[in-house]
Amino acid sequence: MTLLLMFGFGFVSGLRALTAIAAISWAARLERLSLAGSWLGFLGYHWTPWLLTLAALGEIVNDKLPKTPSRKTPPQFAVRIVLGAISGAAIGIPAGSTLAGIALGALGAIVGTLLGAAARARLVRGIGGKDLPIALTEDAVAVGLVLFLVQLT
C-alpha cells in the first residue's frame, strides 16, 4: 500500500504541483504522518501547512490565467517532478523507504503531468475548446484524490 501512496501523491503533483505537498504537510501537522526528526520534519511545523495551502490555492487560480505556461515546459515539469519526489519521500520516511518514495513520487509526477495534460487537451477539444470547465474538473480530481490518499496514510 505504501508504494501506491508514494506513486499516488506524486501523480497528484503532476496534476497540481503544490496540492500533494500541502496535503502531506497537513497530515504531518495533524500527526497522521510521522516526519518529526527527518529532513522533511519542517512539513509538520505550525505554519508550513497554512503557507503551502495558500501557495496551492494560488497555483489553482494561476492555472486558469491565459498566459500560464504549459505544465510540460521544462521549469514547470521539473518542479512537478521534484515536488512529487519530495511527496513520495515523505510517505516513505515512516516506512524506512525514502529512496523508493523519491523514485515512485517522481515517476507518479511524470505520469500525472503527461496524462493530465493529454486528458485535459482531449477533453477541451471534446467540448469545443472551453478550457475552464475542464480545468475546474481537474482541480476537483486533484483535490479529491489527495484527500482520499491522505485518508489512507
Rank of each mutant, 00 (worst) to 15 (best):
E59A: 07
E59K: 04
E59R: 10
I60K: 02
I60E: 05
I60W: 15
I60N: 02
N62A: 12
N62D: 01
N62T: 14
D63V: 15
D63H: 08
D63E: 08
K64D: 01
K64N: 05
L65E: 01
L65C: 01
L65R: 04
P66F: 15
P66E: 14
P66Q: 07
K67A: 09
K67H: 15
K67W: 09
T68R: 13
T68G: 06
T68H: 07
T68N: 08
P69I: 09
P69L: 13
S70Q: 08
S70D: 14
R71Q: 06
R71S: 14
K72H: 08
K72C: 11
K72R: 14
K72V: 14
K72E: 13
K72L: 15
K72D: 00
T73M: 06
P74G: 10
P74W: 09
P75G: 02
P75V: 06
P75T: 04
P75R: 02
P75I: 02
Q76A: 07
Q76P: 00
Q76G: 03
Q76W: 15
F77I: 14
F77V: 13
F77D: 04
F77N: 05
A78F: 08
A78T: 15
A78S: 15
A78P: 07
A78E: 03
V79I: 10
V79H: 02
R80D: 03
R80I: 07
R80F: 06
I81M: 11
I81V: 13
I81F: 10
I81K: 04
L83Y: 03
L83I: 11
L83N: 05
L83T: 15
L83G: 01
L83P: 02
L83D: 09
G84Y: 09
G84S: 06
A85I: 04
A85E: 01
I86K: 02
I86Y: 08
I86F: 05
I86V: 12
S87M: 03
S87F: 07
G88L: 10
G88K: 06
G88D: 05
G88P: 14
A89F: 10
A89V: 11
A89D: 04
A89I: 06
A90P: 11
A90L: 08
I91D: 11
I91A: 08
G92L: 01
G92I: 00
G92F: 04
G92A: 01
P94E: 06
P94N: 11
P94H: 11
P94Y: 04
A95C: 04
A95E: 12
G96C: 11
G96H: 11
G96E: 06
G96R: 05
S97K: 15
L99Q: 14
L99S: 08
L99W: 11
A100P: 01
A100C: 01
A100S: 07
G101H: 02
G101E: 00
G101A: 06
I102C: 05
I102A: 08
G105L: 05
G105C: 05
G105I: 00
G105T: 03
L107Q: 07
L107S: 13
L107W: 03
G108S: 05
A109W: 14
A109M: 14
A109G: 04
A109R: 11
I110G: 00
I110R: 03
I110Y: 03
I110K: 01
I110Q: 03
G112Y: 12
G112P: 12
G112F: 03
T113H: 07
T113Q: 06
T113D: 09
L114Q: 09
L115H: 04
L115S: 15
G116L: 02
G116T: 00
A117G: 11
A117E: 10
A118Q: 13
A118P: 00
A119D: 04
